Simulated scan of single mutants.
Amino acid sequence: MELHQGNLYWPSTVTDPPSFPALTSSINCDVLIIGGGMSGTIMARVLADYDINTVLIEKNQIGTGSTSANTGLLQFSNDAMLVDLIARFGKEKAVYFYKLCLKAIDELDKYNAYLSGPTDFRRAESLYYASNDHEHKKLKNEFDALIQYGFHADYLDKHAIRSLYDFEAPGGIYTKAEAEVNPYKFSLELAKDSDRLGVQIYENTEILSHQFTKDGLFFETEKGDIQAKKVIYATGYGTQEFAKTKGALLERTFTIATEPIDQFIGWHNRSLIWETARPYHYLRATRDNRILIGGLDDKLTKEHDLETKGQQLLHKLKTLFPHLTPSIAFEWSAVFGSTKDGLPFIGEHPKYKDVYFMLGYGGNGTVYSMLGAEILKDLILYGYHPAMDITRLGR
């Protein structure tokens, strides 16, 4: 599957990415992680703190799949509102999951502090605004639920939004617990730190076949075989068929990065911005003063004109911020996964013992990867995590 098309921005920010060898001999390990993107490198770094013989393999290079097309918005709010999750799973599970997302951002912050190189990680604030009057009431209900269950948030009416931003909206939820990151740099730095701590990392190493038996898990590569006690598939959207994840939907999303902006006018605290419409637009600023805006999600099988989509995103940006004069420097499209219930698929395969998946489908993929790494770490070490039933495959 071709995960992205076009001219990606994040790889242009790294002039000399680290490289790792290809596997050239047969090896044994306790845990094999397949996939060297954000999910795989977070998982590797979490396991590196424990006495676990861990191997990570990537069929191409670290961070060059979906990670390099990720926009790097880190939010505890989800594609599915808290009120919707309460309706589906009940108050206890829904609130607990939202708390896990909130904790995951703090965990990402913690691991970022361990890294030796820059990742452009920054704690950020976020505006979630009602796209129209019809959705304003539901947004207000969402704010009430957040406050009721202990989340810190402010409600902005249309006058407050107009005073802080260059655009108008009926209302919005403003939160201050979010973050932003260069996902490509972050994944590379996580790999470097995991390697330093003893995780064996191999690039340009593709699994050609696998065999799951009572004696272990066996994987064939071009120049060496791997025997593992447990395996974690962190290969993202290419794993859907094998993982048997009901309710997963693959689409295509579009993003542009502008040329650097001289001054951010009418954009309060350079906050993250997203909206209630589905599909929704999402915006952020970068360290070098560019604007990333994405959205226009559409069917994966549909033919798309990337240039046309880019111009539509630029038009949306100029509509929101008429005092800015942005121009497109990078434009790309990427495969994007979502689920019917808005939650990721993280856990053990229902048919294969010791075969785990970390599929952070949704607009909160990096946050899902962090909480997923904690869930899978506990499943591997202790056989249990309180959220294992919420994110399980086959639900």
Rank of each mutant, 00 (worst) to 15 (best):
Pro350Ser: 02
Pro170Ile: 07
Ala177Val: 06
Glu303Met: 08
Ser333Tyr: 01
His323Leu: 12
Phe143Cys: 02
Leu320His: 12
Leu85Thr: 11
Pro260His: 09
Gly236Lys: 00
Ile390His: 04
Leu300Asn: 06
Thr213Asn: 09
Leu190Lys: 00
Asp166Trp: 06
Arg287Glu: 09
Asp378His: 15
Gly294Lys: 03
Ile390Met: 10
Tyr174Gly: 00
Phe89Asn: 08
Ala160Arg: 08
Phe321Pro: 00
Lys176Tyr: 07
Thr286Ser: 09
Arg392Thr: 07
Leu371Glu: 03
Glu331Ile: 13
Thr258Trp: 03
Thr71Phe: 06
Ile173Leu: 06
Gly266Ile: 10
His304Lys: 13
Lys137Met: 07
Asn78Leu: 09
Asn28Thr: 12
Ile173Asp: 00
Asp389Tyr: 11
Asn78Phe: 03
Leu250Gly: 10
Asp166Arg: 08
Glu241Val: 05
Leu249His: 14
Glu307Thr: 15
Phe167His: 13
Gly294Ala: 07
Lys223Glu: 15
Lys110Trp: 10
Gln311Asp: 12
Lys176Gln: 05
Glu251Thr: 13
Tyr352Val: 02
Leu393Asp: 07
Phe321Asn: 04
Tyr356Met: 05
Leu74Asn: 11
Glu331Thr: 08
Ala228Ser: 08
Leu379Gly: 04
Tyr98Lys: 08
Phe330Cys: 10
Leu300Val: 06
Thr175Glu: 03
Val335Cys: 04
Glu251His: 12
Leu381His: 06
Lys99Ala: 14
Gly65Glu: 02
Lys244Arg: 15
Gly347Glu: 05
Glu189Arg: 07
Ile27Ala: 02
Glu331Gln: 15
Tyr202Pro: 04
Thr221Met: 10
Thr235His: 00
Arg122Ser: 05
Val355Asp: 03
Asn60Thr: 04
Gly198Asn: 10
Asp79Arg: 12
Gly171Asn: 12
Tyr202Cys: 05
Gln200Met: 15
Thr67Asn: 02
Ser77His: 13
Ala94Asp: 11
Gly360Val: 06
Gly172Cys: 11
Gly117Trp: 02
Met388Cys: 12
Glu259Tyr: 13
Ser116Met: 13
Lys230Ala: 12
His281Val: 04
Pro183Phe: 02
Asp157Gly: 11
Lys353Ser: 15
Arg392Ala: 15
Gly172Phe: 05
Leu317Val: 10
Thr13Asn: 05
Asn7Pro: 03
Gly310Tyr: 09
Leu379Cys: 01
Ala113Leu: 10
Pro344His: 08
Val367Cys: 04
Asp30Val: 02
